[in-house]
Design a protein around this nucleic acid. Sequence first.
DNA 1: GCATAAGCGGTTATCGATAATCGTTGACGG
DNA 2: CCGTCAACGATTATCGATAACCGCTTATGC
Lengths: 242, 242
Amino acid sequence: MIQRVILSEQVKEELLDDIMAGRYKPGDRLVESQIAKRMGISQSPVREALRDMVAMRFVEVEPHKGARVRRIDQREVLEIYPVRACLEELAGQLAVAHAADYLDDLERAIDRMTKAFSARDVRTLAHWDVVFHRTILEASGNQILIETWNSLMIEARTFVTLNNLISRAPEIDLAGRHYPIIEALRDGDAVRCGQVMRLHVEEFGDVMRGIFHDQEAPDQTGEPISMSDADVAIAPTAARAG
Amino acid sequence: MIQRVILSEQVKEELLDDIMAGRYKPGDRLVESQIAKRMGISQSPVREALRDMVAMRFVEVEPHKGARVRRIDQREVLEIYPVRACLEELAGQLAVAHAADYLDDLERAIDRMTKAFSARDVRTLAHWDVVFHRTILEASGNQILIETWNSLMIEARTFVTLNNLISRAPEIDLAGRHYPIIEALRDGDAVRCGQVMRLHVEEFGDVMRGIFHDQEAPDQTGEPISMSDADVAIAPTAARAG
DNA sequence: GCATAAGCGGTTATCGATAATCGTTGACGG
DNA sequence: CCGTCAACGATTATCGATAACCGCTTATGC
């Protein structure tokens, strides 16, 4: 039996880990009693963990019917980019005011991305990509904006997305595309920084749309993108909304 | 003992109602056992309801220390407007494509707002204001955008905000300010519609900032805005994120 | 006199058991 | 053969009780 601080938190981390690693696939049922038995605990903490994961949008429940891993379909992946674009444009504008405190972190993030890119290490690449964007959000200083962005669960989706991206378009220099953002921050040009952020996000959206479009012709249509496309798990720490 | 479908849902509604009506004030403790006893039920559904309300950002909990009604401060109220502005700008742009199906609803909402405004019925005014904006969001057709906007819990905040607004600036014609949006939708001009939406939201933000600024001089500084400024409760139905 | 520890009241976190509910299976009648 | 419905198995929703924990008060030792 696991035991450290809050049991339901541990259950949540473990389940999140399982989902990310593909041990649970989208659509799979998450049966409270089974999970409880497997972990050697009672139903209550499992139930709470599942509830939290519903709020995080990883899981969906129907009353009296139970929980399942939520299915992320193509439409959803594509719909997120316009929303990210406008949120991150705003973040970019606001971040200029406090950029000085974050430039080092941002540069480090790009550096790590570059290294991960050469090593073809998608997991690490995704991690530092998210760190970069999250840092900009934090630099915005608008707490509501940060929370709203967090609610999009971008860390969870980025890994899946990048996996897809790298395998289909391995030539794209992910890391390098972040430099214009840093430059705009350095110049203190809020409007341009916003524009650059927006463009950056929209470009990704376009690339993803292209990928989906390509794979629709030969492949089956509308195949849902599975979280289990991941072949390595994101550390659950990186998946929490904070 | 109440009993209809899901107990924890009922508890949630009741507690939400209590908070909105000011029977619980920000900072008040929400003791599971007391609530359970008062409602004649066990602790579990109360606990679940509280968890949900944490996700909704109405309540905050510290492990082993319990739940309290979350305090909404001035900064938070003001920070929301830039975020709403960019989300609703996007919604406005996207809504043009499907405007036809929603024009009637939108006009009806303005109509009700006008009536409520003459009657000085803030509760109804807030309700239809939210309906109007929500309808635009729905017309956008972007599910992620809708969910993101919902996560801002605008219905809950609008009532408080409008109460504040009406009492401080009773001359402002809330309802009329929505017409330019409908016109842009009718014209099918996506860019203008987005701009108008953005402007509409930003104007509100400015008005609120002015109000806070005014009341800071005579009053104490940084006084948190209490949900209990409301003198009538919003029907809990209108407060659900759905 | 002060720091530390033990005890206590109040509350949350977890447990194990039970009631309520759902989907399915299979009998029954048409 | 097909539709209806009752009973069953599986699972969730809820319960009542207990263990773990926090903050505070009071006792204890130096």
